[in-house]
Every structure is written in structure tokens, then in C-alpha cells.
Amino acid sequence: MIVGAIPFGILFGALAINAGLSVLATLALSLMVYAGSAQFVAAGLVASGAGVGVIVLTTFFVNLRHALYSISVVPYLKHLPQRWLLPLSFWLTDETFAAVIGRYRESEKEPGQGPNKHWFQLGSSVAMYSNWQLCTVIGIVAGTRLENMSEWGLEFAIVVTFIGIVVPLIRRFPMLVCAVVSGVCALVFRDMPHQLGLIVASIIGIAAGVLCEALS
């Protein structure tokens, strides 16, 4: 999973620089926010001139799934003190969650092996975090050295990445309805100021999906 993150880290660094973010801001996003897909979205939104409020709100929506991860690991971490919970939750990304949840569930079957599993989570978190920073720096260097990168159409890298994430998630009919409604609404509301249409379309799409699920 570390290897899989490498191209994204580099791409984020390069895209953010191209979107007009400063080197320091690009680095700070990776250091302090540490959320791959949200960082990609933010870079895209900065490039399109969206306001800070909309980008932060979008980040909130994009990262809401982390709340589900957080809830899922609670049973395995709740005995730990705050000095463990703070860093472990800060580093709780898609990849870390995927790496640790299997371990935790496994440890449930073998009583007496559980108490030290959080060291595994710490180790995998630190490895992925360091890797992300390194790749961001490489991307920043590439982004500042190569002129006219924005003309290459690298934004398509964002599009294809999200297609690769979204399409496999659409396994049930309500999810398809959600995607279609959300996409169409995004087109209809695309001229709203500060890219607010993105938020409006997402909420309508989620509502459509929930409604469809409730009816079926």
C-alpha cells in the first residue's frame, strides 16, 4: 500500500504547485491535513478559484468516511490513553485503516494477543506518513522545475483517479442513483459562486441514494 501511494504523493505535489499554491502551503497540507483524496480535491478547487469556505466544507464531506473508520477501531483502542489516541486518529487514513482493521479483527479470535496491536497501527501509520511527505517533496520539485505542466492536462490525473475510486463502489442500485443524481446536479449547479454547486449536488445525490435505498 505504501508503493501504491507513491505516485499520488508525487502527483499531489506537482498539481498543487500548478494550481498556484505556494511550496510551503503544499508541504503544510501534506504535513497537517494528511488526507490524499481531500488534498487532490483541494488542489483542483484552488485551481478553479473556489473560496476557502467551500474547500474546507468539501474536505469535510470527502473525509466524512474517516468517521466510519474511527468508529470501527474504537473497540480496539478505547483502553489507550490520549497520548496514543491523538496521533493514531490523526494518522487514520484509508490505507492505514485497511492495513490495521484486518489485524484487529484477527486478534479478536486469539485472546491474549490483542493489547499490543496498537504498536502495529503506529508503525504502519508512521511509515505511510513519512512516505507521503517524501513523495510530496518530490512532486513539488517536479512541479516547480517543469514549466507549462498545466498545459499537459494533468488535471485528468485527478479525474481518472476518482473514476478508479468511485466506479468499484457502485455495486448496488441506490449507489448508482446517487452517482447519477449527484453528477447531473453538479452540471446544473456548476455556475454557482465559489463552486458551491459541488456541495449542493452532493447533498442532493446522497439524499437520492438514501431515499432509493429506503424505498427498495
Binding site: 483524496s37 480535491v41 483542483g44 468539501t58 464531506f61 470527502v62 466524512l64 468516511r65 468517521a67 466510519l68 485527478i158 479525474v159 476518482f162 473514476i163 475510486i165 468511485v166 463502489l169 457502485i170 441506490p174 449507489m175 446517487c178 452517482a179 449527484s182 453528477g183 447531473v184 446536479c185 453538479a186 452540471l187 454547486g197 459541488l198 449536488a201 452532493s202 447533498i203 445525490g205 446522497i206 441514494g209 438514501v210
Partner: peptide, 15 residues
């Protein structure tokens, strides 16, 4: 509802 969030947001973003 949370389960629909990634699909809704990312589709609205790229379309």
C-alpha cells in the same frame, strides 16, 4: 447516509 458520501462528492466533482 455516510456510505453515499464518497460516490456523491467525487462524481459531482469530476463530471
Amino acid at each position: 447516509a455516510l456510505r453515499f458520501v464518497p460516490v456523491a462528492v467525487l462524481t459531482a466533482l469530476i463530471l
